[in-house]
């Protein structure tokens, strides 16, 4: 008597179940939703009224030129740099990835599902901020919509790449949150998160503009106005992406 064992990979249903489970993990981690979703909204609501009255170029106000690019960048940066690494560190520490390694699902499946969910989370944060800006404060959409999407995509890659560095160097889930928060606020401060880069000493402002947060804000702002996006900012985002991926590939441990 003999039997044939089939090597079968989990199918679509399994992927959907996994994405659903990862989504539940994210939604039930209430504290993890505050920074990516509520903090940007708070900043938007607090500054939208006055910013909406200051005309900067043409019909665009400070709301579109400064506030929205900043708020949308905050959504991406907080999810990529704080949330994603803390989930990764938790999974690694707790042995969840190891447990999955003895099932037909691979740990990589979990990570892909995690990325899908976190992109969805970023889109929810984005949609929330835009809905409030458009409906409550009469914001206008970007003049160059294509460039805005392209910049947003590139900025997302750069923020996740920075997050991968955090995940790679953090020894524990706790330190991942700490390192993520410090990185987020440092990049944010230099990128104009606390009252605009013009208030910073010039050297710091120049550095901040070349780091991923400041570069993302500046490039998004340019796309909103419809002006040319400065190559320096695109290169900065590209370099951050490459450096992050390479560093993570060299340093990241599964266990």
């Amino acid at each position: 008597m003999s039997t044939v064992i089939e090597a079968r990979r989990p199918g679509v249903r399994s992927w959907l179940t996994l994405v659903g489970c990862e989504a539940k993990m994210v939604v039930r981690d209430t504290a993890g939703l505050v920074v990516p979703v509520l903090l940007p909204l708070l900043i938007l609501v607090m500054s939208a009224q006055s910013a909406g009255d200051q005309v900067v170029v043409g019909e665009l106000t400070a709301l579109e030129v400064y506030v929205l690019p900043l708020v949308l960048t905050m959504v991406l940066a907080s999810i990529g740099i704080i949330n994603m690494p803390s989930f990764l560190a938790y999974y690694r520490r707790s042995g969840i990835l190891r447990r999955l390694a003895v099932t037909p699902a691979s740990p990589a499946m979990v990570l892909v599902a995690q990325v899908i969910v976190s992109v969805l989370q970023a889109l929810v944060g984005l949609a929330g901020a835009l809905a409030v800006a458009f409906l409550a404060f009469d914001a206008r959409p970007p003049v160059d919509l294509g460039a805005a999407f392209a910049v947003y995509g590139l900025a997302m890659a750069a923020m996740y790449a920075v997050g991968m560095i955090v995940a790679a160097v953090a020894p524990t889930p706790n330190s991942a949150v700490a390192i993520g928060l410090i990185t987020f606020f440092a990049l944010g401060a230099l990128g104009g998160m606390f009252g605009g880069a013009s208030g910073l000493p010039e050297t710091l402002a120049v550095i901040g503009e070349r780091l991923p947060f400041g570069a993302a804000v500046a490039a998004l702002s340019a796309a909103w106005v419809g002006g040319p996006v400065d190559a320096v900012h695109l290169i900065s985002l590209g370099v951050a992406t490459v450096v992050g991926v390479v560093t993570a590939a060299l340093l990241f441990r599964w266990e």
Partner: peptide, 9 residues
Amino acid sequence: LQESYLHGA
């Protein structure tokens, strides 16, 4: 596995 943890939430 000994001491393995699952998705906590």
